[in-house]
């Protein structure tokens, strides 16, 4: 498990680094071109746009992570409870 995780991390280390750098320099990333960057820097609402964009960007990933985590948890729990394929109780009743 640990070896496979290390393998995945090594393989995607470039993508992960870009993502981390993107978050760290979010205001620059949000201004996709020189014109946008200049407009954002001139605007008094730059802070507002940055925070709002970060907020709205983060929620889908949080939701996706939460739902995926719940699904993985439910499947693992089902496998641990009934490892040999025995029919379990109705999941709605658990």
């Amino acid at each position: 498990m640990k070896a496979s995780l290390r393998k995945v991390l090594t393989r995607f280390s470039g993508v992960i680094s870009v993502l981390v750098l993107s978050v760290m320099t979010a205001s620059r990333v949000m201004a996709q071109c020189a014109m946008c960057s200049g407009a954002a820097e001139a605007s008094s609402g730059q802070f507002a746009y940055s925070k709002s964009t970060l907020f709205m960007l983060s929620i889908p990933y949080l939701l996706l992570g939460g739902v995926a985590g719940y699904i993985v948890h439910a499947f693992r729990k089902a496998r641990v409870s009934f490892p040999d394929g025995e029919p379990g109780p109705d999941p709605g009743e658990r």
Binding site: S44, G45, A48, Y49, S52, F55, M56, I59, L63, V67
Partner: peptide, 20 residues
Amino acid sequence: VAETMLFTGLMGGYLVLRYS
């Protein structure tokens, strides 16, 4: 999840206007 995105959009709009 869809409902959460609806509220996220509304709150995002609020944050832009609030902090501008």
